[in-house]
Design a binder for these strands. Structure first.
Lengths: 222, 222, 222, 222
DNA sequence: GATGAATGAGGCTTCATTCAT
DNA sequence: CATGAATGAAGCCTCATTCAT
């Protein structure tokens, strides 16, 4: 019998359901990272995964839903990497925790350029649905940062700043560096990046003796 | 006079043509900002512009080329807004110029959310061609920032920093704030944004007396 | 006034209506010969003619109708070139007249490759309408040939042949040679072509002593 | 056995695939023959084949490529039908072989009017690409004819003629007859056509006693 | 479960023709 | 008459998804 024959053949190559799903996800990740969401086709994904078209739809509902899943996993990963700052260990401890957070996020992203690219380039501006998902993720992250800043302000470690804007600035400074990495630009090695980003966020750019004299005023008007 | 007559006629025609083209560009801008490049269809654009399908192709070669044009115009606009920092006016002058740059860019973008959205969301990760275009734009911008930083370092206004990373941080802090604006998040008003961004970039986040004690070390391990 | 100004300008370049029409026809001929009916666009024709789009439609109803006109002119030209054979001048006269017909047609076509190409390549298989037009033209031509053959048979100049088939063969032999010319193949010069075509039609290909012995029979079966 | 099983399966699939493809080709053939290349739309083809739009593109790359395939198949068919003349069997043999070639080609074309129509009407003057394809086909065919003529000349079966022109005449005489068949003109039955075409090509049209006296001279001048 | 042939909605683009100036 | 911007029907092709085997 034909189908029997096939069954025998395929049992030998069969992967457990979860393995296969994971494999498909990984392939989709790479394809999306390579080509972007819209350029990527289901054909590309199944070709890379070595499965049939129908098989893909046994594991995922749609092209959209794989990407969704990838984003979810990615968000989960990052969320579990970034830790809330514990103020009880004093100023030095706070800095160490900040450093640790930045360092681990950067390391995570360095270790998976495909993910990085999807997060910072391919998932941006896809459509209202994905935009909302992304916003939600960043909202959480920003909340964490903002809470840390507020804590720091209370402890008089952090200057008086508008924490909403400041947390955006922090996030932006990290994202931009990672974006360049994602786009394949030549960058200093990881340790330097971390050190520079932290220094920048802690002390800003100006020499202290100059900074204390400067008083940026919102200009009279344009 | 014949040639005169021609000239008058010619100018009129060119004007009308330019107006029509500008109108189409504006409509395309809005559609792309609303729906993103891929979701947007030529039908959407011409419907909004109130012209026939063929008319669109009278002014643009393809969907891609309108978007291209929009990006070019946008880049041109920003490039002509950001000015190189002139160090001859001393530290206070440098700060004022920085402030002016940030202020004007933010104002420019505030005045056109659609453009902002296209730049920061819709044009990201579209395809290698557009990616390169975007990269090129940011390269120019970063070069300008980096040169300013180097100048500042020479004048001992700027701390010793890795200028490549620092300029990315600066760019990122501004982009992120604008991104939130583009995505329609509730934000403080413009003046505050500018002031906070500048303060952040000048002094960082830490209280000076704390900052000078902190010595972030690249941690022994990951 | 604008329109006045234009009027003055254009009166100087104005061509009489018929001239302009002829000019357009000539340009259309060249364009169609170059690119074929479907590849050719109205744009191509008006570009070559140096007139505006609307102007074209002042002289012709449609793309189809120009081509129609071109074919009509072409048919008229050929029809007026081919003359009915007059048997009263005896066998030698008949041959001379045949020769004259072939010679003049070939010369006509040689002198206008564009026409030739349109007749033999571009007008073939366009659509039922044009096919019928072409058929009608060839029907007339074939009728002429057939009548000549019948005359020749009566005069015992022509062998006993099926005149319908024979006239097709005659027509085909001439058309094929001209087709090669139209397609730009390297060919012997006109005089040789005429002589060879006539020789072929008069005596066939076999040596007379062989020919008289051969008796082609429709084979028992394929 | 596994590999065996695979083979059986594979053959079945390939067969089905080939059948489907052949069906589509046949439908395309009919549509093109009916309406010509340009009038025919993919919609027409799939409607006739009873398949969906996408299915068509599963088997062919484009409208052009189906037509290309049809031409290739047609050329292949004709090329495999026409056989090189073998002179070793003497004059009578040569005639028999000529007859056989003409007869088989005509039969082939009679049995498939659609093909005939595509070859002689629809594929003519389509565009430079197809023109070249067609030229190449006829070049091969003409070469074969020309070689046969040269052979015949050496054997003194064929008169002294310009073989290039003569082979065009032969080809043309056959094509024209077939063209009328393709266009649906009422024609004598096949056997008569073959006999007449052969007679015409062997002996020409003139009565032998007249022919030997006639000496067509290239006329003094046009 | 796995397969991959089949589907068909939907998008981009072309170009013959019209019509207001 | 001449112009050329505007029109919109029509065609080709892609690709996410389905379903019979």
């Amino acid at each position: 019998m034909l189908s029997e024959c096939f069954f025998v053949f395929f049992r030998e190559v069969v992967l457990r359901r979860e393995q296969r799903r994971a494999h498909l996800l990984q392939c989709a990740l790479e394809v999306f990272a390579d080509q972007g969401y819209h350029q990527a086709s289901i054909s590309d994904i199944i070709k890379r995964a070595g499965v049939a078209r129908g098989t893909f739809y046994l594991y995922f509902d749609s092209k959209r839903s794989v990407f969704d899943q990838l984003l979810d996993d990615l968000f989960e990963l990052i969320n579990s990497t970034v830790r809330r700052i514990d103020p009880s260990r004093g100023p030095a401890g706070v800095v160490a925790q900040m450093e640790s957070n930045v360092d681990e996020v950067i390391e995570l992203m360095f270790s998976n350029r495909a993910m990085l690219r999807i997060l910072l380039a391919e998932a941006v501006g896809l459509d209202p649905g994905f935009d909302e998902k992304l916003s939600e993720f960043y909202r959480r992250l920003l909340l964490l940062i903002e809470q840390s800043l507020k804590l720091g302000t209370d402890m008089q470690v952090i200057r008086k700043v508008n924490t909403q804007v400041a947390s955006l600035c922090i996030l932006g400074s990290i994202k931009e560096v990672l974006y360049q990495v994602a786009m394949g630009q030549k960058m200093p090695k990881r340790e330097i990046l971390v050190k520079e980003i932290l220094g920048y966020n802690i002390r800003g750019l100006f020499a202290p003796e100059v900074a204390e004299k400067v008083e940026p005023m919102t200009r009279g008007e344009n």
